[in-house]
């Protein structure tokens, strides 16, 4: 009986290790080959590079205009995340504390955005009307809009855990609505806001479709488009393409390692309640 259990455990470890290998090996191949010469890298083997060519990275950063696009990506991700966290925190607060028929409808209307796709063609028309098409500001505004539905969904679910007595105490102390929200409630929402921030950040960092539609100047490109364009020009040089992949994946890897707990808790907090 006992040995049967040990056998099952062993089998589980083998399956799990095998699957983890499938995830990790591609990255090792990429990392190793990003330091090789173009000729060596074309073979795409797991052999160690004969010498470490760090200049591949320098070439990619310079030729691929990665510095500029990295800064662009940072702006496109951080500004909308900060705005969404504030706007959705405020909206969810009123929506969940004052449950009227209208507010219920507004809530449902807003989380409908999780489902419906955006019509980019008509969106561009609207943006041209306001003269924000093709600009940084336009893209940022759209990212705010596009992340509202999911953020309302997870923040709204969390606000119930903050007891109403907290509000009442603050009101008795003479707080006005803005003080009540920003000085009392906002800090208490920190766990869910951090989660929402991280999830949004990674979504925007990965997003490929929106800039294809909304950005037409190369100096406004986010990293994704710069890398894709570089791949189009340099696809014969796998070593450079690989260095490019490493540089694009690195920020996400770092955020993932730091924020893994928040990412998973956020993902599941909305999920398990259904």
């Amino acid at each position: 009986m006992k040995s049967k259990k040990q056998l099952t455990t062993l089998a589980k470890h083998i399956v799990a290790l095998f699957l983890c290998t499938l995830v990790i090996v591609p990255f090792i191949i990429i990392l190793l080959n990003s330091f090789k010469t173009s000729k060596e890298a074309a073979l795409m083997t797991l052999e160690l590079p004969k010498q470490l060519l760090f200049e591949n990275y320098a070439t990619v950063i310079e030729k691929g205009k990665l510095a500029q696009s990295f800064v662009n990506s940072l702006i496109y991700a951080i500004v909308p995340c900060a705005c969404v966290v504030i706007f959705c925190g405020m909206a969810s607060f009123t929506l969940s504390r004052r449950i009227t028929k209208l507010n219920k409808f507004i809530y449902m209307f807003m989380i409908l955005g999780i489902f419906v796709p955006v019509n980019y063609l008509a969106l561009i028309k609207i943006m041209k009307l306001f003269s924000i098409y093709g600009s940084r500001f336009g893209l940022i505004l759209f990212y705010i809009a596009n992340n509202i539905a999911f953020s309302i969904f997870i923040i709204y679910g969390f606000i119930h855990t903050v007891p109403r007595e907290v509000d009442e105490a603050a009101i008795i102390d003479g707080a006005n609505p803005l003080q009540l929200f920003f000085e009392v409630i906002f800090p208490l929402l920190k766990p869910v806001l951090v989660t929402a921030f991280i999830l949004m950040f990674m979504n925007i960092w990965s997003d490929f479709m929106t800039p294809l539609y909304l950005i037409n100047k190369t100096n406004l490109w986010p990293m994704n488009l710069a890398v894709y364009n570089f791949f189009g020009r340099e696809r014969a040089n796998w070593n450079l393409v690989f260095a490019d992949i490493v540089l694009t994946a690195l920020p996400v890897l770092i955020i993932y390692l730091i924020g893994q707990k928040q990412i998973i808790s956020g993902l599941t907090s909305g999920a398990v309640k259904g």
């Binding site: 419906v116 759209f142 809009a145």
Partner: peptide
């Protein structure tokens, strides 16, 4: 408190 989120979302996602 609801307006900023609702207006931006309505104008750029649903409209």
């Amino acid at each position: 408190f609801i307006w900023p989120a609702l207006i931006i979302y309505g104008l750029l996602c649903i409209l």
